[in-house]
Simulated scan of single mutants.
Amino acid sequence: MSDDQMPPARRRILDAADRLFYLNGINSTGVDAVIEQAQVARMTFYKHFGGKEALILAYLSGRETRWQTLLERSIGRAGEDPRARLLAVFDALRSWATSETRFRGCSFVNAMAELADPDHSARAVITSYKGALRDRVLELAREAGAADPELLTDQLLLVYEGAISNHSLGNVDDAVHKAHFTAEQLIAAAVPV
């Protein structure tokens, strides 16, 4: 269901869950807080989601959709240069990290840490998302002509995840910018001109 086809109450519930889950954590945010922030009746919430687990899945799905849109837009803006298209992953990261009001890292990594039950349905969504990101970076590394696209993909993802953690923790000044520069160097070393 696209955003323009979504009932307003469902949109308000998802918006509230997105804010609260991301800023306060999934486990710390109860259904009552989401209902109150969304200004909907309890029955309206249960009509649309049936419970918190379905809301968590919708929250993660929405985050994934927004990231994929931002990523593909960044790749598109990079034009036809395959090296620039690969580096666009870090352009998207910079855009995303600086657009959050209070950046708390990757919502998927945060959710994985909170939802410790290996059988929780959200863990499959998280694994799928991270796998899709790896597949996309690998595809871009191959298009760029990297000598070892698997190795370059692994290196870039390590820098990507490290940038997110260090940016949110404040351990490294301007971590996302430094990760972008590091990615440029890795790509330059791995992709022939």
Rank of each mutant, 00 (worst) to 15 (best):
E184A: 06
L60D: 04
R11T: 15
H120R: 02
S168W: 13
A147D: 14
R94N: 14
G145D: 06
R94P: 02
R85Y: 13
G51W: 05
A113M: 12
M43S: 11
D148G: 03
D4Y: 14
I187S: 00
G131F: 08
G30E: 08
M6G: 11
F49R: 07
L57C: 03
S165P: 00
A175F: 05
D135F: 09
E36F: 09
L57E: 08
K47F: 12
I75F: 02
D18I: 03
L20V: 07
W96L: 09
L20P: 01
G76Y: 01
H48V: 06
P192W: 07
A116T: 09
V193E: 05
Y46V: 01
G162R: 05
V31M: 02
Y46F: 11
A183G: 00
N27K: 14
D91S: 11
P8A: 15
T127F: 08
L86A: 07
P149Q: 07
Q185N: 00
S74Q: 10
W96G: 00
D174A: 14
L57F: 00
A9K: 11
N110I: 08
A122K: 01
L138T: 04
A33Q: 15
F45L: 00
D32K: 12
A147V: 13
T153Q: 04
A146H: 07
A97R: 10
G30R: 06
M43K: 15
L133T: 04
S107W: 04
L152P: 01
R123Y: 10
T65W: 14
V125F: 05
G76F: 07
R73T: 13
M43R: 14
A175I: 05
L55N: 00
S107I: 04
L87K: 14
S165K: 11
A88T: 08
A124K: 10
D91W: 13
G170R: 03
E184D: 08
E80H: 11
R104Y: 09
T98W: 14
F108C: 02
A111W: 00
E114A: 01
V176W: 13
V191S: 00
A175S: 02
A38C: 11
L87P: 01
A78M: 05
